[in-house]
């Protein structure tokens, strides 16, 4: 197992870091890691999405660097979530949605008809906008993925996976005494971390996060952001957010979407300090949005 190969990270006490985030100026929290240092395994090429006759996304091409956080920003309805959902083919579940172009993971086309979407989603996990724990116990929520994929040979394995996933999500200390109580009884931030633990439990390579903090209060948001930063060590993370500060705080690479088009992408620091496009600049300075 992978547990022992890296530290699980200290649990996040709710009171430990509240002051650290929202009030701080954007610039200080921007990480200075060069995304080019991390090779890209996930690439997209000319991706367009249509809902019926309506085109929602226009020819998006972007490389996602390995083991780092990439943020998609843009005003609502700009197609960033749509694009995110293409990456693990969640758009398949929407009636009348059609995707063209190439999305490749390790050179393998994700829209290849021979590719198994079940396996794909095990490799590319997803965390949703609103915390959506299943109406089951905390343990069962995390165990769900390993169970369906048959990842645990026996009960002990399963318990180990659940524990390590909860630890990685920084939730274990808070819930270790009530693993068998319903996951819906947790606070919003805890629920979202539970959902992250649930995604981690399957052992994905990429984790997609669709505005994971939009339903949370600032303190819970800060905790999740720190968690994302921790996870970057082991996972490739793509986060969709409408909060520029959040993108600036957690991501190394940022892509700006507007009206279904990818306007600009690059290292986060560059995008925020020195955008090439006027529209990006307008958005960042709050003139559109």
């Amino acid at each position: 197992m992978t547990t022992d190969t890296f530290s699980a990270g200290a649990p996040f006490a709710m009171s430990a870091s509240p002051t650290a985030v929202p009030a701080e100026p954007v610039k200080e929290t921007v990480r200075t890691i060069d995304p080019a240092a991390n090779p890209a395994r996930l690439r997209t090429d000319d991706v367009s999405v249509f809902y019926g006759d309506k085109q929602a996304l226009f020819d998006v091409s972007i490389d996602i660097p390995e083991k780092s956080v990439s943020a998609f920003i843009g005003p609502s309805g700009c197609g960033k979530s749509t694009f995110l959902r293409c990456i693990n083919r969640m758009n398949d579940t929407i009636e009348g949605c059609r995707v063209s172009g190439d999305i490749t993971l390790d050179g393998e086309n994700l829209y290849d008809p021979r590719l198994d979407v079940v396996e794909l989603r095990a490799r590319i996990g997803m965390v949703f906008q609103k915390p959506n724990p299943f109406p089951k116990s905390i343990f069962e929520n995390v165990a769900y993925g390993p169970r369906i994929h048959g990842l645990a040979g026996n009960k002990a394995d399963l318990e180990e996976i659940v524990e390590s996933s909860l630890k990685k999500a920084g939730l274990f200390e808070e819930v270790k005494d009530r693993l068998h109580q319903p996951g819906t009884g947790l606070s919003g931030g805890q629920q979202q971390r539970l959902c992250i633990a649930r995604a981690i439990a399957v052992g994905p390579e990429v984790i997609l996060m669709d505005e994971p903090c939009s339903a949370l209060d600032p303190i819970a948001t800060a905790v999740i952001e720190e968690l994302i930063d921790e996870l970057r060590e082991n996972y490739t993370i793509i986060i969709v957010t409408h909060s520029m500060q959040q993108a600036a705080r957690v991501s190394q690479k940022t892509a700006f979407f507007h009206l279904g088009k990818l306007i600009e992408e690059g290292p986060t620091e560059e995008i925020f300090t020195n955008p090439r496009e006027k529209r990006t600049q307008d958005y960042i300075t709050g003139r559109i949005g």
Binding site: M1, V118, A122, H149, G150, L151, G203
Partner: peptide, 13 residues
């Protein structure tokens, strides 16, 4: 570990 996991998942598919 990831490769082993993928293998397990594939077997169950």
């Amino acid at each position: 570990a990831a490769r082993a996991r993928r293998e397990t998942i594939r077997k169950g598919l």
